[in-house]
Every structure is written in C-alpha cells, then in structure tokens.
Simulated assay, not measured.
Amino acid sequence: MIFIFKTNVDSIAKVKKVAPKLNKLFPNSKWNFDLEDCDNILRFESKEDIMEKVIFLLKVIGFECEAL
C-alpha cells in the first residue's frame, strides 16, 4: 500500500531528524519526502496499514503530519 502525508518537514536537516526513527520503526517500508512540494509530502510504501503510527510518530517528535 502507498500512504501519502502532508507534513511540515521542510528541510534536509528535519528529514535527518526523522529518518532514523522511521527506519527503526518501519524497517521493511520504503519512504521519501518531497520537499519541493508545497505540502512537503511524505510518501510511504508498506505492506501494513501504518497510517496512524506514522502520524503519531511525527507528532511525538514535534512535526505536523496528516493523511491525504
């Protein structure tokens, strides 16, 4: 499944803050940020329904995140 999120992760420095946590919690998933998009899109490819977990994780570490 592919999940798409709107975030406020708008720089490489912020991606570097988020990346280790995403990799640790979702080791079998593929993800990437589109920092050129006005919504700073996070695309997630996972076999599991991880929508709520991703939103919760980003909010816990101080970022905004909502499903699109």
Rank of each mutant, 00 (worst) to 15 (best):
E45T: 12
V15Q: 06
A67H: 08
L57K: 04
S11M: 06
L22H: 09
L57G: 00
N28L: 10
L42H: 03
E66Y: 08
D37H: 14
L25E: 14
L57I: 10
A13F: 07
I12E: 13
F63W: 01
I12H: 08
V15G: 03
D10E: 09
C65S: 06
F33S: 04
N32C: 07
I55W: 06
K59F: 04
N8C: 05
V18G: 02
I12D: 04
K16W: 08
G62R: 07
K47F: 06
L25M: 14
F33K: 02
D10A: 12
E45I: 11
W31Q: 04
V54Y: 03
C65L: 06
M1V: 04
I12R: 09
E36A: 12
F33M: 03
G62S: 06
N8G: 05
K16T: 07
L42V: 05
V18H: 02
D10P: 05
I4K: 14
L68V: 14
G62I: 01
K53V: 02
E52S: 15
K6Y: 03
M51E: 14
N28P: 04
I12C: 08
I12Y: 06
E52A: 14
I55H: 07
N32A: 08
A19F: 11
E66F: 11
I50A: 10
I50K: 14
F63E: 05
N40F: 15
N40M: 08
E64M: 10
S46N: 05
K17R: 13
F5L: 00
E66Q: 11
T7K: 00
V54G: 05
S46G: 05
K24N: 12
F33E: 00
I41G: 03
A19E: 09
M51V: 13
F3V: 00
V54R: 01
F26T: 10
N23L: 15
W31P: 03
M1S: 10
L42P: 05
F63N: 06
I12K: 11
M1C: 02
E36R: 11
A13P: 02
E48K: 15
E45F: 09
F44C: 10
D34Y: 01
A13G: 12
C38K: 08
P27M: 07
N32L: 11
L22Q: 07
E64H: 11
K21D: 10
F56G: 09
N8K: 00
I50W: 03
K14S: 07
N8E: 05
N32P: 01
C65H: 01
V54L: 03
P27V: 11
R43Y: 13
N8V: 00
P27C: 09
V15P: 00
K16L: 10
N23Y: 07
F44K: 02
L25T: 08
L58I: 12
V60D: 10
K6D: 11
R43F: 12
I12N: 06
K17G: 06
I41F: 10
F26A: 12
N8W: 01
K24L: 13
K16R: 12
K6W: 02
V18I: 13
D49F: 08
T7H: 00
V9F: 04
N28M: 06
F26I: 14
V18C: 04
K17T: 15
K24E: 15
D37P: 02
K47H: 10
D10C: 09
